[in-house]
Amino acid sequence: MIADRARSLWRGAVTVIVVLAIYEAVARSGHFAPALMPTLGVVLQTLLGSLLDGSMFEHAAATLYRVLCGFGLAVFVGLPLGVLMGRFRPVENFVLPLASALMPIPSLAWIPVFILWLGLGNAVTILIVLYAALFPMLLNTWSGVRAVNPIWLRAAGAMGANENALFWKVIIPGASPFIIAGLRQSFLRAWVAVIGAEMLAASNFGLGWVIFDAKEFLNTDVMLSSLIVIGFIGFVTERLVFGSLERATIYRWGMAQAAKT
């Protein structure tokens, strides 16, 4: 088990090292101006500088705040609504056409509209994140509730479970493989959307804004260090938060297989 993990870590590390080495070779080859393609040393120096003076943390905090607000709202709306869709046909009939119509529109396409309505700033960004994160949460929960084994409902009903107990003690855990997949996808979409939204709609803070702003001054090293932070936060959330959530629930319960089919 531990040996397996070490091996998979090593395999991942090899890929990263090879790609970094190729980048470094191209950067040093002199084909591109160093201002456009700084060496890794310069990027790391910039990254370290921005971490030490705290500015990178401030930007990351601003981005995380927006993503957590938007993602939190998406879960707050999408999870109960998805359950209601799965349980009650009229809700499904009402929500599904709306979701089908809105879902294919990329969230970033709404930015100009939202800016006109709400002005620049956090509200627009959070709304974009909510838009991006809502549908995966909603539709996964809906599928999950419909995939709850009817025998669980029957058994619980025979043991005197009321509607409230059915919801919390059977439907939610029974749908958990799908709900966790929904949380995962939802967060990923939120993270992608927040960077885009910040580029266009954030006035002066956030990791996406840093990249967009640095472009004006040809600060490629700043752009790249912001990208590294974006990738790092996304990776850590994916592995640590959702990975441990899965290990504590559906893997422990032997429900992970069901989630894949």
Binding site: N149, I151, W152, R154, A155, A156, M159, G160, A161, N162, A165, K169, V170, P173, G174, S176, T249, W253, G254, M255
Partner: peptide, 24 residues
């Protein structure tokens, strides 16, 4: 029931057996 899947996979054996009493 006949189906082994009747137990709640997210509850231990004890948790499954206690379900009816919990509802009570």
């Amino acid at each position: 029931f006949q189906d082994f899947a009747q137990l709640f996979p997210w509850r231990t054996a004890l948790g499954n057996v206690a379900f009816g009493l919990e509802m009570k």
